[in-house]
Design a protein around this nucleic acid. Structure first.
Lengths: 236, 236
DNA sequence: TTCAGCGATTAACATTTCATTAACAAAACT
DNA sequence: AGTTTTGTTAATGAAATGTTAATCGCTGAA
């Protein structure tokens, strides 16, 4: 994903940190406006439109929260990430990251900051529509509702178990591709040993049974290598 | 449902937490009055009328329970949610909390706090509502008068408890959708632990019994995942 | 105050589900 | 042939769920 054009507002009084963060953000394709005290922050914020704000909590003149309040008066929705000192309340606020704002305790790594920025920007790009109607995949003659664990053929409905659904989904996402046994195990089971391998065989056997109404769907075995899932797929 | 206009009283001495919680509540359309010590809390509480109070237990000057008692003197019914440190033992908290209240241990997620607030507000809204014209929902062959807690099938009438009605309503609002156990618990109970999970099972069992006159209504379990409520719904 | 009644939670026990493991058969490769 | 890999079905055991009963805390009446 390309975030160029995203504009980040940075408020940090420590000159060194200010420079480093700014530089790193710019290296990553962001446009950055950086200031070093709370007073300037407020005047500067009014001049432009930002995608995200990064505020040091301890600032000369006006502290970060005051600045945050002023920002909120202008913009209800811009995400704010606070930079807080380690000493502050560490575990007391952990877990608060789900709400509108977030915080990072110093010292932090640039990777961490970049990651959080990415998460926020992604979130603001699309309204969270997670509770919409579950998407059906067409798998040959079947409809496969992964979220509901339903595999439907005409008016026959089969409710899959969670793991069956996971495996079928994985096959759909990698159809007509050779998948090694360990690749499948790592991606669906999360680990790989002999007995899980046998478990996989049991699941494959079961999926073949569920899918036998369409002769064009095949889970074929490559001896000693793995499997290939062949099917005509589509969205509804 | 729209809670805008609900006024929340927040007492939390930690500046970071105070700001973040306040900001998040405001983002969610609540009006918030926030103070940072027990002394101010008491003077401030007298000035206004609140729908719900969120009190940190450990406060400078006056601790949260003392504040709670003062609040109780003024208002018998306002719900109080305590924010407690993880270290506190369960029974100590329970012993100290006064009727009708709840507590959350830090660290907590904003999501969790918001859901609990929602559950409390829903509960306190109810009594005023009873004199409106009750709306019937059709649920299969049943009529469900949520406001009156009545489930009616032909001439048979069953009076539900408040929680039974809440759960059934939640199912109606999310029919034919997979609901995870914790999703249900968070939305109907406001929190999520093992024993509430068993409580949920008891309620499901009871709802199934109440609804068994219509064979097309199903609360079906997806093992290890949650439930799906299937029914033909409609308004009257 | 104590006591009965109610509703939610917790306990206790029964039942079901499902992934894994085992066991054996069939196929593929040496 | 002999060995390994895969297919299939059944047995196992742990965990999740279903169900009924006991318990707990609250409320309101006596």
């Amino acid at each position: 994903m390309d975030f160029s054009g995203e504009h980040i507002f940075l408020v940090e009084d420590d000159q060194t940190l200010n420079f480093i963060v700014r530089d790193n953000l710019e290296q990553n394709g962001y446009k950055v406006t950086a200031v070093d005290d709370g007073q300037k922050a407020i005047t500067e914020f009014e001049k432009d439109k930002f995608s995200i704000c990064i505020l040091d909590v301890m600032l000369p003149k006006k502290d970060g929260f005051t600045v945050a309040r002023e920002i909120r008066k202008k913009d209800d929705h811009v995400p704010i990430i606070f930079l807080t000192a380690k000493s502050m309340t560490e575990d007391r606020i952990k877990g608060l990251s789900i709400g509108g704002d977030d915080y990072i305790t110093k010292p932090f790594s640039m990777e961490e900051l970049l990651l959080r920025i990415k998460v926020f920007l992604k979130r603001s790009l699309k309204p969270d529509n997670t509770d919409g109607i579950p998407v059906a995949r067409r798998v040959g003659v079947y409809n496969f509702y992964f979220e509901n664990l339903i595999l439907e053929c005409g008016d026959k409905r089969k409710t899959l178990t969670y793991k069956e659904a996971e495996l079928l989904k994985y096959f759909c996402e990698n159809s007509n591709k050779v998948l090694s046994r360990s690749e499948i195990l790592m991606n669906v089971w999360g680990s790989d040993d002999y007995y899980l391998g046998r478990s996989l065989d049991v699941f494959i056997s079961r999926l073949r049974r569920y899918l036998k109404d369409d002769p064009d769907i095949k889970i074929l075995n490559l001896h000693g290598i793995g499997f290939r899932f062949n099917a005509r797929l589509g969205k509804n």
